[in-house]
């Protein structure tokens, strides 16, 4: 693939743009943002916490 390095270069450019934009906006793919409702309220109350009762 003779143009592989161009594809790779374009990919790197996309990655760099992502890194810059994400860092500037304080974005993390593993974070909870204001546009979503994660955690207990959105995910079924505190039932998740009951895991401990049945453990082992």
């Amino acid at each position: 693939m003779k143009w592989g390095h161009w594809v790779y270069g374009a990919w790197c450019a996309v990655v760099l743009v992502y890194l810059w934009m994400a860092n500037q906006s304080g974005y993390s793919p593993f974070g909870t943002s204001t546009s979503s409702h994660g955690g207990a309220h959105g995910g079924g109350g505190h039932g998740g916490g009951n895991r401990g009762f049945y453990h082992k």
Binding site: T32, S33, T34, H37, G38, G39, A40, H41, G42, G43, H46, G48, G49, N50, R51, G52, F53
Partner: peptide
């Protein structure tokens, strides 16, 4: 033992909220 904290971050000006949990 276990603990779960249901948290809401509330913007004091706009009232916008962000809900999340600590487990």
């Amino acid at each position: 033992s276990w603990a779960e904290l249901d948290c809401v971050l509330v913007n004091a000006t706009t009232g916008a909220t962000l809900e999340f949990a600590e487990q």
